[in-house]
Structures are given as C-alpha cells and as structure tokens.
Simulated assay, not measured.
Amino acid sequence: MTEQELLSLPDEAYMDAAQQEFFRELLLSQRAELQERISGEFQVMREFEPSSDPSDLGTVEEQRQWQLRLLEREKKLLDKIDEALERISRAEYGWCKETGEPIGLRRLLLRPTATLSIEAKERHMRES
C-alpha cells in the first residue's frame, strides 16, 4: 500500500489490519536504516586513529563528543520505534495514549512514533 492509498481509505478503516501492516513495515524500514547508521558511526569511531598533534586533540575530542550525542539521540529514536512496534502488536498503535482518540494518518506518516494526538501534544507543550 502506498501513502496515497493509505490516505484515500475511508475513516472507518482507521488502524485496520492493512493500515497497521503499512505502519509496521514503515517502522521496520526506519529501524533497519537507523541501525545501519548507528553501526556505521560506531565503525568510524573504532577506525579513527588520533593524531599526535596536540592542536588536533581538542578538535578530535569535540567531534567525538558530537558523535556520541548523535548516537545517543539515534538510540532514543530506536527505542521509540521499538515501542511503536510493540503498540502495533498490542493493537494500540495510532491511538492517543492520553485521550484515546485517533492520532491521525497524516501525523503518523510524519512521525510514526507519535503517541499523542496534535491536540494532546499542544496541551503538553503549553503546560511545559
């Protein structure tokens, strides 16, 4: 199923088996891409040979810290993808965890790991 086909389905089809399978495949694809990026970053970090030039050490350490922050952020996204896949297996995916209302297909296409509807997310942001 394509995104266009997904969006053309009637409202009554929201989170039926076909839609859940669409998002499961999307999440699995994103998960594989993310794991590949993480693996690549770790490989670059392992292969890096630091220079003995003291002026380069500061730059090298700054780059290493940046890579570690990036890996940490990607690991968090990987966890969110795994949580979304778990929600699909429990037939809870696509529903706002706060209100129980549909999150919406367009929002899920933009952010497949979303757990809140736009209204609930905006409310959380106002309260923060």
Rank of each mutant, 00 (worst) to 15 (best):
Y14H: 07
R64Y: 08
L105Q: 02
L85M: 04
D82W: 01
P102R: 03
R106E: 13
R73F: 04
I103T: 05
L7C: 12
Q30R: 08
R69W: 06
R126C: 05
T59E: 15
E72F: 07
S51C: 13
S39V: 01
K97E: 08
L68A: 09
G94Y: 04
E12Y: 04
T115N: 06
L78I: 03
S29R: 15
K121A: 13
R46L: 13
L34A: 13
K121M: 09
M15T: 01
D11L: 07
Q20E: 05
E98A: 03
L57D: 12
S117P: 01
L77W: 11
M15E: 00
R107A: 10
R46H: 14
K97H: 08
E127W: 09
M125K: 15
R111N: 06
K121Y: 09
M125I: 14
I38L: 15
E36T: 12
K80F: 11
K121R: 13
R106M: 04
P102H: 00
M45S: 11
E12H: 05
R111Q: 05
L116A: 01
R37Q: 14
Q35S: 12
C96M: 01
D16Q: 11
T99Q: 10
Q65D: 09
L68Y: 10
D53E: 11
E74N: 11
F48W: 15
D79A: 09
M15D: 08
S52L: 12
R111W: 11
M45W: 14
Q35W: 12
E61G: 00
E5T: 06
L85F: 10
G40Y: 12
A18H: 13
S51M: 02
L116Y: 07
I103C: 04
Q19Y: 08
P112K: 00
E101I: 00
R46V: 04
L68T: 10
R106Y: 07
S55L: 09
E41D: 13
E72K: 06
G104D: 07
L77C: 02
A114D: 10
L116P: 00
W66R: 12
S52C: 09
L108Q: 04
E98N: 10
A91M: 06
E36Y: 11
L28P: 05
A13F: 06
L105I: 05
R46S: 14
E74T: 01
L57A: 14
A120T: 05
L6G: 10
M45L: 15
R64F: 03
S128R: 11
L78K: 09
E119R: 14
Q63W: 04
M1K: 15
S89P: 06
I88R: 14
M125E: 14
E47T: 01
D16M: 01
D79N: 14
E33V: 06
W95N: 01
E83M: 02
E86L: 05
G100I: 00
Q30D: 15
P10C: 03
S52G: 10
E49Q: 12
E49G: 03
E62T: 10
L34M: 11
I88W: 07
L108D: 04
Y14I: 02
F23E: 02
A84R: 05
E86H: 14
